[in-house]
Design a protein around this nucleic acid. Structure first.
Lengths: 137, 137
DNA sequence: TTACGACTTCAAGTCAACTTGAGGTCAACC
DNA sequence: GGTTGACCTCAAGTTGACTTGAAGTCGTAA
């Protein structure tokens, strides 16, 4: 067998042992077996952890991520749900781009006070307006 | 005077009263004065709240946001720091784009199991590798 | 005059996602 | 046979960002 012990999983996934145990506790990952008390993991756990890590950085909660897998460990969401997720991510990307543009503007703008700079305030207003529109829809 | 009371600020900013009081407690916003016990805000608080809201959605903590303002309430970070922030945001945008692409792929890919689909695994690996590279730098 | 609505304080509670700490197990090496 | 080192459990603690609840204060309108 090519089972991995927790230290190996930590090294290869970058996820801490305490987090791994926590994930197991909440049912997000499972260890295949034990040797004595020690958890042994199937290598596939690494892919699963990669998905988890990525989704986390995309702002998904662990609960949401858990729902992305079915009982057999496959990624299983309907195409429609996938696209819906992708759209959410897309929206967040737009917001971040607005934020980035504002930061760049502030870095370059020679105005003594940004909050008085018309183009800054305009960027700000439109960013916030867009956000509120999204939230209320 | 054109001071706003808290209800007006709530309506115009979308920030809840309890959050506003909390922000005041931690020094992130201030109320200009009181009428009896009631807080009165200067209209500028709305711009400040817009900045706060936007930065929050960009993943900045309230502590980090507080540091973006100087004592007089101006946005004041060095150009260099601004660009550094913008770079961070940029990185996050890249990650989210990778995530979005993966989601779209999963939605479209006809493979029975995504975790066995070579192009999915490839997308996943490169996304995670990029992330870890960023973290370790 | 009493009732209402919009505010107030302050302490405590909540939630997610972990981390920490104390005390225990176990195989392997000196 | 004693000591590492790597793991284990379980309960409790932490952090950030608020929210909630109980009890109180005001101004105004019926």
């Amino acid at each position: 067998m090519d089972l991995l012990d927790i230290g190996e999983v930590v090294r290869r996934s970058g996820v801490k042992a305490s987090a791994l145990r926590y994930y197991e506790e909440i049912g997000l990952v499972r260890s295949a077996s034990r040797i004595g008390l020690r958890r042994q993991y199937e290598p596939q756990v690494l892919t699963r952890l990669a998905v988890i890590t990525l989704a986390k950085s995309g702002g998904f909660s662990l609960t949401e991520i858990a729902q992305m897998f079915d009982a057999s460990g496959q990624l299983r969401i309907s195409r429609k749900a996938m696209h819906a997720r992708a759209d959410e991510v897309e929206t967040q990307i737009q917001e971040l781009m607005a934020l980035r543009d504002m930061l760049r503007h502030v870095a370059e703008c020679p105005a003594p006070s940004h909050l008085q700079c018309p183009s800054f305030v305009k960027l700000l207003k439109s960013a916030v307006a867009q956000k509120r529109a999204v939230l209320s829809s």
